[in-house]
């Protein structure tokens, strides 16, 4: 190690720390998720108190590739006009309803376009529980902002291997 002047040493130190922060930020080491949902949606209350099921809002999960993020119309079938709870989040929803604007929900789970994933195939045909990939959503009091199971090829292939499903590339890649 060559002998450096104190100012140079400080600069080197600062540079190193800055570099680490930049790299960590790039790979999101410290951040689990930077997603923020427009409404602090409570899955637990909807499922436990209102007695709803996943399919009631994610209506296409059994019949199409995409499970779909609920449309505003689905919310308005219960929430229209007067608030039906004392949640501070409900007025936010009612504002969207009054304005007739769709709620800008942030999508959490997505597969790249070179991957074919079908909910129907997994849930209806494969009889896989939602919780296997999405976690125990009925216990979530906060909106979903991060993935329960990482959307990575390893996760898919491990499960396929365990269940004796094909791991041929062409079965999922297109």
């Amino acid at each position: 190690m060559p002998k450096l002047r104190p100012t140079t040493r400080k600069l080197v130190l600062l540079g190193t720390i800055g570099g680490i922060i930049l790299i960590a930020g790039y790979f999101k080491v410290f951040l689990h998720s930077d997603l923020r949902q427009p409404i602090q949606y409570n899955h637990k209350i909807h499922i436990e108190s209102a007695g709803m099921t996943c399919v009631d809002c994610h209506e296409s999960v059994l019949v199409s590739a995409s499970a779909t993020i609920p449309r505003l119309e689905i919310c308005t079938s219960c929430h229209s006009g007067e608030p039906i709870s004392d949640s501070p989040e409900e007025p936010k929803l009612l504002k969207f309803v009054a304005d007739g604007n769709e709620i800008p929900w942030q999508r959490v789970y997505s597969v790249p376009d070179h991957v074919y994933f079908s909910h129907q195939r997994h849930v209806t045909d494969g009889r896989i529980e939602c919780a296997t990939c999405h976690g125990n959503i009925p216990d979530f009091t906060q909106p979903v902002t991060s993935t329960f199971m990482p959307v990575m090829m390893e996760s898919c292939m491990d499960c396929h291997r365990l269940n004796g499903v094909t791991n041929d590339c062409l079965a999922c890649h297109r």
């Binding site: 074919y116 079908s118 129907q120 195939r121 209806t124 045909d125 062409l170 079965a171 297109r174």
Partner: peptide
């Protein structure tokens, strides 16, 4: 690809 994406959906229907 011999339109292998079509095979995916055909397989799904046949399986169902």
């Amino acid at each position: 690809s011999f339109c292998s994406h079509r095979l995916m959906s055909v397989k799904e229907t046949a399986h169902r």
